[in-house]
Design a protein around this nucleic acid. Structure first.
Length: 890
DNA sequence: TATTCGCGGGG
DNA sequence: GTGTACGCGAATA
C-alpha cells in the first residue's frame, strides 16, 4: 500500500535507543497523516589526526569510517571521518569533544529532521509518496492515517492540499490596569473560528460567565480543558490569531500550566505544547501543526502606517472590530447581559478577522512556495529568516557534489566577523545626484544584478583559488577570472561553481514558471505560479547576502567583496559609456541602476527606443548573463540626497504608458505627523513635479501657513495620535498625550482613555510648556480654543517641506517670506544650484552647530523658531559647543 | 552623521 | 532540540 501527502512537519522520537522520524502531512483528500520512518542513522564528519582517539570508548558512536569528501577551501578531495551515532541529541557533546581535541567538524549542527529530509530529497510542503506502508497501531499521535513506512519518495506534483485552519482569541481581565499577566490574571473568554465546519459550527465563544450564544463553564480550568479538546477534535493544520505568538499562545499556555491543564495542542499526545521567549520574540512549538501569526506576517509583507487589528482589518478587508475599548473589557465582563453579549461578539470578531486575514489575503501562499523551493519546513519559513532557507537549499547541492558543509561559527567568531565587516565589506555604488529638478530622465537597471554577477564570474567558495593554490587546483593564471577586488575564481569551463549552478537553476526555472503563467487559466493555479516565481527570485537574491552575513556557514569576505566590486565597476563603466558614447548625462545611480537625462526629449516612445538601444549595446559588452534593461521614465526627477528622491514616473505597459508618483526615502505618512503634513507634502511635490510650478508650490505652502495662523485649518487635520502603553504614573518623562489623559481624568474619569488606548491630541496656544498644551480635539471645539499655529509650522511642517524646497534651491528665509524669490526659474533651467555663500563674521563649522542661542536670555533652540527671534525678544546667534557664533561655514 | 534606545502588537 | 532569535523610527553622542 502507498500514500501520497504533502509534508507539513517533521520531527523524531527515540524508541529503543533508535531515532524514529515522524512525517506529519495532509493528503489531497484532506486527511491528516503521520508516518513513521525507522532506520536512518545520525551522522556527521570530522577531520584531523586524532579523530578515532578523541572518540575512543564513546558509547554514542556506532561507527567511524574514513571517506573522501570535498571541503570548501581545498581543491582536491580530503580524507575525513564519517561518524555514525546512536542519538541525534548527543551530537553537540561529541562535536565539542572533537573540537576540544583540535579536530574540525562538519555537518555537526544540522537538525536531525533536516539531515533526513536533505538525504531523502524531501522538502517542506513538498509532496511525497510512501512505500511499504504498515498500519501503525499507536495512540502517541493523532492523525486520520498512521503508518510505518519503508520508504519516502519525493514526487513532482503541483497544487496544495486543503488545510484546516483554526483562529482563536483570548479576553482577560487585568488586576493592575497594565497588560494582563498569566501569573495572576485569568482568561475569561476564548473565541474560536473554524475554516471548515466543526460539529456544524463555524465559530464558538467559551466563557466562564453564562450568556446567549456562549458556551459557559464553572471554572477557567474546565474552559481551557475544553479548548484543548476542541482543538484535538477539529484537528487543524494551521492555528492562527492576531499576535498569537506574543500574546494568546504564551498566555493560554502559562494559564494551563498554572491550572494543571495538559497543553496537548499538537498532533503528538506525548509532547506538551510549549513556548519560548527570547528578547521580544516568542515562539510556539506545535508538533504536527503550524502556527501562523497573522500579525507577524502582515507586518512583514504589507507596508501600513499601523498594525493594530482594527487598522489592518480596515485597510486590507474593509472591516472593523466590534467597538469595545480595552479599558471597557472588565466593565462589560461584569456588566449587563447586553454588555456581556457585546464583549462575546467583540471576541468572536477578533478571531474571525485573524482568520479572514489569513484566508482572504492568502498569507501562507508565499511561504508555502518558499518552503517548496528551499526545502525548509513551513513553520521555519514563517518564523525564521533567509538563513534557514539558504542553508537547507545549499546543503543538498553541496552534498550531491561530494562536499561536506561547514558548521556555523561560534559567537566569538561571529562577533569578530561582524566588527570586521564594516571596514572590509564594500557595498553598492551610489552616484552623487546632480541637484535640481530634472526632466526627461530614463532609468536603466541591471536585471538581478548580484545573481548574474555570481554566475558570470563563476563566484563560489568551491571555485575560489587562493594565491598559493594554483598547483593544488591544477590550473594556470589563464584559467582564472580576477574580480576588481582582487579575488580569483576558476573559469566556468575549468569547474563550474555550485552557487552559480544553483542560481542558473533558480533563474531558468523562474523564466519557465513565468512563461507557464501566461497560458494558465484559473485563479488558484495562477496564484500558485506567481508565488513560485516570486520564491525563486527571493532565493536567488538572498544568495549574495549569505556570504557577508556574520553567522553564515559560508562567510567569505573575498566573495562578498568580489560581487559588489564587480557591481561598482559595472555602474561606473556604464555611466562612462552613456556619457561618452551617447552624450547623455547620468544624473544619479544606485547599486544596479543609472538615471540618464535625455535632455529636451518629450516623446515617451522615442525615449524608450533610445533606452533600449543603449541597454542592448551595453549588455552586448557585459560578461555572461549580465543584462542592462530599460526600466522606466522619470518625466521629472527631484533628488534630495543619495537614496532620497521624488519622481513623476511613466512605465511601459502593453496598453501604453502608465503614470504614477515615485517617492524614495521620503515619507508622506508618519504616525507622529498630523494629516496636514502629508497632505501639504503631497500637494507641494505634485505641483513641483507635474506642473513644474515651483512658485505655485511655494504659494500653496504659504497659504497653508496663513490658514494655520488664521485658524482656518480643520482640527481633524492637526490631530496627532500616540498610544498610552502604561498607566500615567509609570511614565518618567513628560509627554503630551499622557499629560492630556491626566487632564481628561480630572474632568471626567469615566470617559477618559485607559491604558492601551490611542490618544488623539492637538497642541493649543498657551504659556505653559508644550506637553501641557496637548488637548482633546472635541474639547477644543467645545471651548473654542486656539490651536498653536507656530507649533505646527515649526515642529510638524517645516522639516519635511524644507527638505523638498531645499532641493529646489529655495532657502527657508525665502520660504518664510522675507527673502527674494527671483531666480527660481533660472534654477529650473540650469538644473543645478550653488549653495549661498554666508558672510563671514565670527564663524563655526557646520557640524559644530547645535542650533540657535538667544543673545539676551541664552535660551537654546534646536531649530530656528518661526518669529526669527527669541520669545524674550532677543536676537539669535548660532550655537555650538564652543559658544555662540554669527556665521556657519562648511 | 552614525549608533544606541525603545517600543510595537496583544488585554 | 545536531537551533535560532525583530525592525524601524526617535533619541542621543
Amino acid at each position: 500500500m502507498a500514500m501520497e501527502f504533502q509534508i507539513l512537519d517533521v520531527d523524531y522520537v527515540n524508541l529503543n535507543d533508535k531515532p524514529i522520524v515522524r512525517f506529519f502531512g495532509k493528503t489531497e483528500k484532506g486527511e491528516s497523516v503521520c508516518v513513521f520512518y525507522e532506520g536512518f542513522k545520525p551522522y556527521f564528519y570530522a577531520a584531523g589526526d586524532n579523530v578515532r582517539e578523541a572518540l575512543e570508548g564513546e558509547p554514542e558512536v556506532m561507527g567511524i569510517e574514513q571517506v573522501e569528501r570535498n571541503i570548501v577551501g581545498h581543491h582536491k578531495p580530503q580524507k575525513v571521518f564519517k561518524i555514525t551515532t546512536r542519538n541525534p541529541a548527543k551530537t553537540p557533546d561529541l562535536r565539542e569533544k572533537l573540537r576540544a581535541a583540535g579536530m574540525v567538524v562538519y555537518e555537526a549542527d544540522i537538525l536531525f529532521k533536516y539531515r533526513v529530509m536533505a538525504d531523502m530529497n524531501l522538502k517542506g510542503i513538498g509532496w511525497v509518496r510512501t512505500e511499504g506502508d504498515e498500519f501503525a497501531n499507536t495512540e502517541t499521535v493523532q492523525a486520520d492515517k498512521k503508518f510505518t513506512v519503508k520508504k519516502l519518495v519525493p514526487i513532482e506534483k503541483e497544487g496544495n492540499a486543503d488545510l484546516k485552519h483554526l483562529a482563536f482569541d483570548l479576553e482577560c481581565t487585568s488586576s493592575t490596569g497594565m497588560l494582563p499577566e498569566p501569573r495572576r490574571d485569568p482568561v475569561i473568554m476564548v473565541s474560536i473560528v473554524f475554516s471548515h465546519k466543526f460539529e456544524g459550527k463555524d465559530s464558538m465563544v467559551l466563557s466562564t460567565r453564562k450568556g446567549d450564544g456562549v458556551t459557559s463553564f464553572d471554572s477557567e480550568s474546565e474552559m481551557l480543558e475544553e479548548f484543548v479538546k476542541i482543538v484535538r477534535r477539529y484537528d487543524p493544520d494551521i492555528m492562527t490569531g492576531y499576535n498569537c505568538n506574543n500574546f494568546d499562545f504564551p498566555f493560554i499556555l502559562d494559564r494551563m500550566y498554572k491550572l494543571d491543564v495538559k497543553p496537548l495542542l499538537g498532533r503528538c499526545l506525548q509532547k506538551r505544547t510549549s513556548h519560548r521567549k527570547i528578547g521580544n520574540i516568542s515562539r510556539v512549538n506545535l508538533t504536527g501543526r503550524i502556527v501562523l501569526d497573522s500579525f507577524a506576517i502582515i507586518k512583514k509583507d504589507f507596508s501600513l502606517q499601523r498594525y493594530s487589528l482594527n487598522f489592518v482589518a480596515n485597510a486590507l478587508l474593509k472591516e472593523q472590530k466590534v467597538d469595545v475599548k480595552h479599558s471597557e473589557i472588565e466593565k462589560f465582563w461584569k456588566g449587563s447581559d447586553e454588555e456581556f453579549r457585546k464583549l462575546a461578539e467583540y471576541c468572536r470578531k477578533d478571531s474571525r478577522l485573524a482568520m479572514d486575514l489569513v484566508l482572504k489575503m492568502k498569507l501562507a501562499d508565499k511561504y508555502k512556495a518558499l518552503s517548496r523551493v528551499s526545502g525548509a519546513l513551513l513553520q521555519d519559513t514563517l518564523d525564521s529568516g533567509e538563513t534557514t532557507r539558504i542553508e537547507n537549499y545549499m546543503l543538498r547541492e553541496f552534498n550531491r557534489k561530494g562536499y561536506v558543509f561547514p558548521c556555523r561559527p561560534d559567537d566569538a567568531t561571529a562577533v569578530k566577523r561582524g566588527l570586521g565587516r564594516k571596514e572590509e565589506l564594500g557595498g553598492g555604488a551610489v552616484l552623487e545626484p546632480i541637484k535640481g529638478l530634472h526632466s526627461s530622465v530614463v532609468v536603466l537597471d541591471f536585471k538581478s544584478m548580484y545573481p548574474t554577477i555570481i554566475r558570470s564570474f563563476n563566484i563560489c567558495p568551491t571555485t575560489k583559488v587562493m594565491p598559493d593554490q594554483e598547483e593544488e587546483a591544477g590550473v594556470k593564471k589563464e584559467d582564472l577570472i580576477v574580480t576588481p577586488s582582487g579575488a580569483r575564481f576558476l573559469k566556468t569551463d575549468k569547474k563550474k561553481g555550485i552557487v552559480p549552478g544553483l542560481l542558473e537553476n533558480l533563474m531558468s526555472e523562474r523564466d519557465a514558471v513565468k512563461k507557464a503563467m501566461k497560458g494558465v487559466k484559473g485563479e488558484s493555479k495562477s496564484r500558485e505560479l506567481y508565488a513560485k516565481q516570486w520564491a525563486l527570485k527571493i532565493m536567488a537574491n538572498a544568495m549574495y547576502g549569505y556570504f557577508g552575513y556574520a553567522r553564515s556557514k559560508l562567510f567569505d569576505l573575498d566573495i562578498a567583496n568580489s560581487i559588489t566590486s564587480v557591481g561598482r565597476e559595472t555602474i561606473h563603466s556604464t555611466k562612462d559609456v552613456v556619457e561618452k558614447k551617447y552624450g547623455y548625462t547620468i544624473v544619479y545611480g544606485d547599486t544596479d541602476s543609472v538615471f540618464a537625462k535625455l535632455e529636451g526629449m518629450e516623446d515617451m516612445d522615442e525615449m524608450g527606443r533610445i533606452s533600449d538601444k543603449i541597454a542592448k549595446y551595453i549588455t552586448s559588452n557585459l560578461l555572461g548573463s549580465m543584462e542592462l534593461e530599460f526600466e522606466k521614465i522619470f518625466k521629472r526627477f527631484l533628488p534630495l540626497t543619495k537614496k532620497r528622491y521624488a519622481a513623476w514616473k511613466f512605465e511601459r505597459t502593453k496598453d501604453g504608458w502608465k503614470e504614477s508618483m515615485e517617492m524614495k526615502g521620503i515619507e508622506t505618512v508618519r504616525r507622529d505627523w498630523c494629516k496636514l503634513v502629508g497632505e501639504t507634502l503631497n500637494v507641494v511635490i505634485e505641483t513641483i513635479l507635474k506642473k513644474e510650478d515651483v512658485k505655485g508650490a511655494v504659494k500653496y505652502f504659504k497659504a497653508v501657513i496663513d490658514d494655520l495662523l488664521a485658524n482656518k485649518i480643520d482640527i481633524s487635520k492637526l490631530i496627532i495620535t500616540k498610544t498610552m502603553t502604561k498607566a500615567p504614573k509609570y511614565y518618567k518623562g513628560i509627554q503630551p498625550h499622557i499629560e492630556l489623559v491626566t487632564k481628561m481624568r480630572a474632568r471626567s474619569p469615566a470617559d477618559a482613555p485607559g491604558v492601551g488606548d490611542r490618544i488623539e491630541y492637538v497642541i493649543v496656544k498657551g504659556k505653559e510648556m508644550l506637553s501641557k498644551r496637548a488637548e482633546d480635539p472635541s474639547y477644543i471645539k467645545e471651548k473654542g480654543l486656539q490651536i498653536d499655529a507656530s507649533y505646527y509650522i515649526d515642529n510638524q511642517l517645516m522639516a519635511p517641506l524644507e527638505r523638498i524646497f531645499g532641493a529646489m534651491g529655495i532657502t527657508k528665509s525665502e520660504l518664510m517670506g522675507g527673502g527674494k524669490q527671483t531666480g527660481l526659474l533660472d534654477i529650473l533651467r540650469q538644473g543645478r544650484i550653488e549653495a549661498a555663500e554666508p558672510k563671514i563674521l565670527k564663524e563655526i563649522k557646520r557640524d559644530e552647530m547645535t542650533g540657535f542661542l538667544c543673545s539676551k536670555c541664552s535660551k537654546h533652540y534646536p531649530r530656528m523658531p518661526l518669529m526669527g527671534s527669541c520669545g524674550c525678544g532677543g536676537r539669535l546667534n548660532f550655537a555650538s559647543a564652543n559658544g555662540p557664533a554669527e556665521a556657519v561655514v562648511n
